[in-house]
């Protein structure tokens, strides 16, 4: 039986993320130009560059909130040029996303916020309760499970956001300036949390304008400026400017 006659599709995943000559423009304005890079399963990659360089656009292309204008994005075995409508939710369930402004739903408790990705995926109520209680316990948030987001500190809100991103066991975690709204002490804790998540086997791609937050031995650096990938050594010249 050849592969084409099999009653299912293989998704061989050797690379978690692969950008191949990706261009992305918005109203003729080029946000990304000829971007190519890859991320292996379990790798920690820091995507850095000045504001407006295209970091958020890259993250958005990874969860396929947008598609490339040219070139191809492959994530967890899904390719941007072969996406069927049902593939978008299936791909996104393999990805956890953490935002700078947390994006917690203000009218839901911590428990309900963290439970949302599982409910969206149709997980049974019992399994949702078990997983959410367990994760909130691991992250030291059990006592906050009935709190509303506005009752939490910034650090707690970001930990809830990370818990929400991790609750469905994603293959890759995207973090878009996750410490942008936090003080240095809390920022360090969030970074430690991301490193811990990465050590458990989840690939992490963190976008930040401050790459010094992560020790170089823990992560690979990708530097982007004006929509183009640059040599990481260019960072020093940018910092000098």
């Amino acid at each position: 039986m050849g592969p084409s006659s099999m009653p299912f599709r293989f998704r061989a995943v050797t690379l978690m993320i692969r950008f191949d000559g990706v261009y992305r423009s918005y109203s003729e304005w080029p946000a990304l130009e000829d971007v190519s890079f890859s991320v292996e399963p379990g790798e920690f990659v820091v995507l850095t560059g000045p504001s407006g360089a295209g970091k958020t656009t890259i993250l958005r292309l990874i969860w396929m909130g947008d598609l490339p204008s040219r070139g191809r994005v492959e994530v967890a075995g899904y390719s941007s040029d072969r996406m069927r409508p049902a593939d978008f939710p299936a791909l996104r369930r393999k990805i956890g996303v953490v935002f700078q402004d947390f994006k917690l739903l203000p009218d839901r408790t911590v428990f309900d916020n963290v439970a949302l990705p599982l409910q969206v995926a149709g997980t049974s109520t019992r399994a949702v309760r078990k997983r959410v209680f367990s994760l909130l316990g691991e992250m030291g948030l059990s006592h906050r499970r009935l709190s509303m987001p506005h009752e939490l500190s910034g650090g707690e809100q970001q930990r809830v956001a990370v818990a929400r991103a991790m609750v469905a066991h994603p293959s890759v975690l995207l973090a878009d300036e996750p410490t942008g709204n936090l003080d240095p002490v809390v920022s360090r804790r969030v970074i430690e949390l991301l490193v811990e998540i990465n050590r458990s086997g989840t690939a992490v791609l963190m976008a930040t304008h401050d790459p010094r937050q992560i020790p170089p031995r823990l992560a690979r650096l990708i530097f982007i400026e004006q929509g183009r990938i640059k040599d990481p050594s260019d960072i020093q010249s940018v910092e000098a400017r």
Binding site: P89, L91, K94, K103, L105, L116, A168
Partner: peptide, 13 residues
């Protein structure tokens, strides 16, 4: 925000 987050989390249409 709810719609955006559900979409990002992989909610079906």
């Amino acid at each position: 925000l709810t719609v955006e987050m559900m979409t990002i989390m992989g909610a079906s249409d």
